[in-house]
Design a binder for these strands. Sequence first.
DNA 1: TCTACAACCTCTAGTCACTAGAGCTTCAAG
DNA 2: CTTGAAGCTCTAGTGACTAGAGGTTGTAGA
Lengths: 138, 138
Amino acid sequence: MFSIGQLSKQTGVKVPTIRYYEQVGLLVSAGRTEGNQRRYDKGGLERLGFIRHARDLGFSIEAITALIDLQQHPDRSCQEATLIAQHQLTDVREKLLRLKALEAELVRIADGCDGEGNSEECYVLASLADHQHCRGEH
Amino acid sequence: MFSIGQLSKQTGVKVPTIRYYEQVGLLVSAGRTEGNQRRYDKGGLERLGFIRHARDLGFSIEAITALIDLQQHPDRSCQEATLIAQHQLTDVREKLLRLKALEAELVRIADGCDGEGNSEECYVLASLADHQHCRGEH
DNA sequence: TCTACAACCTCTAGTCACTAGAGCTTCAAG
DNA sequence: CTTGAAGCTCTAGTGACTAGAGGTTGTAGA
């Protein structure tokens, strides 16, 4: 049996975050000692590890709730889980595209200026004021 | 002179967002009609355009406040603005690296499963439960 | 067995950058 | 002069935590 602090150390999830996960129903309520402190078993450790991993991969709490739900119903098709993962992948790819475009423009802006001179003629500020220079959307 | 709605249409920034920007001091308080409605001139339009562009590039409100501050003090060196932009670029590049790693793992997870069978043997769920398979950090 | 104190508990409020809604007033076209 | 879209303020909600206050419990050492 682990205390919440031990669980935290083993998973790398902060103590208040564990309590928060329980509060929003992501983690089933832990058993308690007579003095009302939470105690976890190996199962609890594994569930939190799952959540941690999924959160690290950017899955929303909502998506993780759905995945855990699927785990608890082994009769249900795996297709749903795959759909959630693929949706997440699409999401990540969209963000990647956006970020790449931003990087390009920031390079243009940040490197276009030698850092000398005063801000009246600053290239950074001029670039931000004038959207015209931008290639592509945002 | 523009109303807040016209300003919104021209810049693509939603009306409540414009009011929010004013509230947090990002946009100087607009002049008002006798009936207390905001009226903007060309300067206001340009300032909001600047903010919009910077937000699109992911600059925080705090960073934008600093940039606007620099604009208002043309005697100050441009170096500070360049620093802010470079900091933002570093940030974007870090996010890019992280996202690329996530993409790789999501491909592994989402494509490793044919979507058939039940969730007991689902590769997505197994992968999320078991961190061991992961290459690299997260 | 006692004591000290780290770790636990609950609850509320704060973070960021908005967004939504209630309930009211003003502006402008017909 | 009427109508209704657009404006106003204020409060509260979003997601995923994080921080702090103020009180209680568990446990290691004396």
